[in-house]
Design a protein around this nucleic acid. Structure first.
Lengths: 231, 231
DNA sequence: AGTTTTTTACTTGTCAGACTACCGGACAAG
DNA sequence: CTTGTCCGGTAGTCTGACAAGTAAAAAACT
């Protein structure tokens, strides 16, 4: 005896919309299609569509504002707001920060190796090239921005939004000492090599390799920072 | 300057309906007024009323059955249904969250095992006792608070402020569905056991043991959640 | 030209009515 | 007793319309 599962149209619509958001690359905060467009696109009435949207709103997937439109929501941004604020206002010890990154980022690299798409890979390649270019020109500020971007792209490629938001928080509010690691003699060229190793492993889909490469990258960077700080 | 609060009609209606249920003594399982009657009684259109009912349904306050009517949800049923509905719509979010916790928390446990002081251990013991007490009294809300507190205390015991604030962020604004894992039958007693194992390993200074115990705890919790999703 | 006001287009919010799908009881036929 | 049919009541969906909020273009006024 199989369970008969009754499906209401409005609930089916929620699934379709969720898939649309994912498949068509809508990011948190983006404006979504209007109700009229959606109704036409999905071939349903506005009533049913609105009920579906109501569900998505209550479950926190979209926010709806009269006169403005439908927007893709992001629970994660809210969740880590306090964390980001704390990072920004507290020059926490570099050691603590390093410890956390050493826990998280190798796993991010491993996930990225498994889940990265062609878009992700291409963006990382562009980022790496920019990094090399700025390195040749000794543009430290741009270099730092590129370094952050690389780590963020990797987190994005893990296709785990929570990880992405988390790494975004950690990279935007890096402690000063950590940022200045790129000022250390030889760190830039090492970074290029180490990023390259990570990038290659991710491209090859080599999870363990990516994990190890990231582990190596962070450890080496940490060693250089320590030498710089404590002699 | 008073804050302007915009209220959508459908949301006002939910409040009125909730009050009606309480004031007029409707018990769980009772049949409520029909949509037509409600619309007339409240002086609103059926569309707005249906959106209000949709909210109440998703949040697990009423159950709606085509051809039969609107029913006040029974409390036993209510938790399961709203939980299941929420899970259905936030599956990816919860999975992401779990993935991150599975990466971070075992390492936190390992660090706590190495760095925890007597104060940390004592607080964790008190927390565990409270948890068992609330479990016996079936006080779910207090239970949830205790669960979060345990994980926070552990993070604090790692003596890494970044990790602590991070875990605080992750546990304070936890997705509703994840919190509700404690509503799953048998999860509470398992949680007591699993927390105990973590606590013992930390007390004994057994890093690898604590790491494994936490890994086991999260994995088991996730399995139970998944059973509710797909089982 | 620069600024303010008005208009315009587009969006979500609400309403009304009609039709469909579904449920359960009543009742007659077998 | 079982089966089939009908019927009233219910939620589910569709259509079209108008109200209300928003933002940007257009117009009017310095």
């Amino acid at each position: 005896m199989t369970e008969i599962k009754k499906i209401r149209l409005s609930e089916s619509i929620t699934d379709v919309i969720k898939e649309m958001i994912a498949r068509e690359g809508f990011k948190p905060g983006d404006k979504f299609y209007s109700e009229l467009v959606l109704a036409k696109k999905l071939g349903v009435s506005r009533s049913s569509l609105r009920e579906a949207l109501k569900i998505l709103e209550v479950t926190g997937q979209v926010t709806i504002r009269q006169g403005k439109g439908i927007f893709v929501a992001d629970l994660n941004d809210q969740r880590f707001k306090s964390f980001a604020a704390w990072l920004k206002n507290n020059e926490q010890s570099i050691k603590d920060n390093f410890e956390v990154r050493l826990i998280i980022e190798p796993k991010i690299a491993a996930l990225a190796a498994r889940h990265a798409g062609t878009d992700d890979v291409q963006k990382m390649r562009e980022c790496s090239r920019s990094f090399a270019k700025y390195a040749a020109q000794q543009e430290i500020d741009s270099l730092i921005r590129c370094d952050r971007e690389f780590h963020r792209l990797l987190a994005f490629a893990s296709h785990n939004k929570t990880l992405y938001v988390l790494m975004k928080s950690m990279t935007t509010n890096l402690p000063y000492g950590w940022i200045s690691s790129l000022h250390i003699a030889g760190r830039i060229s090492k970074t290029i090599t180490e990023h390259e190793q990570i990038y290659c492993a991710v491209t090859a889909g080599d999870g363990p390799g990516a994990e190890q490469a990231m582990n190596n990258h962070l450890t080496k960077a940490w060693e250089d920072v320590q030498i710089h700080l404590y002699g």
